[in-house]
Design a protein around this nucleic acid. Structure first.
Lengths: 192, 192
DNA sequence: ATTTGACTATTATCGTTTATTAGTCAAATA
DNA sequence: TATTTGACTAATAAACGATAATAGTCAAAT
């Protein structure tokens, strides 16, 4: 990625995270980055696509970090699940532009991001399903019924926590008990 | 409750559930109930308060049904938790006016209902906390850390399911595995 | 105490103008 | 050739008034 493009992207990320998508203008981003507005459009084509790139970069970072965890060799599937949940929450907590998309009052405005979020959901669901299947194969886990549905519900739970944690400022309070909760969940799925 | 008031309330509930709060007019409700509009205002004071009553009546029904479950004598706390989760989802599935308040595009418009929902949340949290505490006292459950936070997270999970289940039409698909999931959760919190 | 419906007050909607901001492009630069 | 620039245009949001729809009132009737 060229230095100009990189500069524009990081400036956009900072500005969007400060004022939100709708209260940030392209002129403002260009000015902050000390570049011409034309360069923004040369590299990103539109404001929506620029914001997409910003959110995508946050999700790509999350994906990279999670990939390390999911692919850790010789690790008990329960430990992978634990590490996954913890890491996910930590990174989401600092993904300010992703958090912006959670605001229900903007729900309809972010439709152009639906596919990005959906793609991430599918990726996570796939990874969770794989690790659950591996756990069952290794006799570490015991899961009656459809494994994919468990993966889906785990994701629903984690995503359900996002609003209280990141938008309603309960991160500190709830995260303190998160380890205990993870313990219970893994106990629930463990083969005893 | 007077017959007129009852008639108005049930007509309002039907009409709101059919067209939603904003696309239903007071004239329409009065006409459907074959009453004068003045009667609506005599009994309910405003459109918002009328809708409140409608949603409250759905939540009161839920409360009543759950109270029976929570207060069942001589019942294992795990069975109470299981019955609670199942019953909650069944009743929520038919509480159409409550479901309307879940729509994120209307989020800001339903602020006058926030206290009703919050009150229900607190009630549920209190009931769950009580049953978890009872379970621990009876040596049926094992929960390290703050019990209230578990109650809160269980509620977050159940409420997180509402949107996929009721608004995105996944009720049939996901509910089929719900029993298995409940089994896992109760296993996770059980003292072994 | 309750019910009624003609009436008033508010709020949504539409059309128009103005201001802001998204998006373009020919020329300059490297 | 690929990139950068900023004056320029096009599209959209905000502001405003006029009109339509609907929330809410109240004196009279039951």
């Amino acid at each position: 990625m060229s230095p100009t493009k990189e500069k524009l992207l990081s400036t956009a990320s900072k500005t969007f995270s400060k004022y939100g998508f709708y209260k940030t203008s392209m002129d403002e981003i260009a000015k902050s980055a000390r570049k011409a507005k034309g360069s923004l459009y040369y590299h990103f084509n539109s404001k929506e696509l620029l914001f997409r790139e910003v959110v995508l970069s946050e999700l790509d970072f999350l994906k990279e970090e999670l990939t390390v965890i999911f692919n850790a060799p010789n690790t008990d599937s329960r430990d992978i699940i634990k590490a996954y949940m913890t890491k996910r929450m930590m990174i989401m907590n600092i993904s300010i532009n992703y958090q912006e998309t959670l605001r229900p009052e903007f729900y309809e405005f972010y439709e152009f991001l639906n596919d990005v979020i959906l793609e991430m959901d599918l990726w996570e669901k796939k990874q969770i399903t794989a690790i659950l299947n591996k756990g069952v194969a290794n006799d570490e886990l015991e899961l009656p019924g459809d494994i994919e549905v468990y993966a889906e519900m785990l994701l629903i739970f984690l995503k359900g926590l996002e609003t209280p944690l990141f938008l309603k400022g309960q991160y500190e309070r709830l995260i303190s008990n998160f380890d205990n909760l993870i313990g219970i969940l893994t106990k629930g799925i463990s083969k005893l």
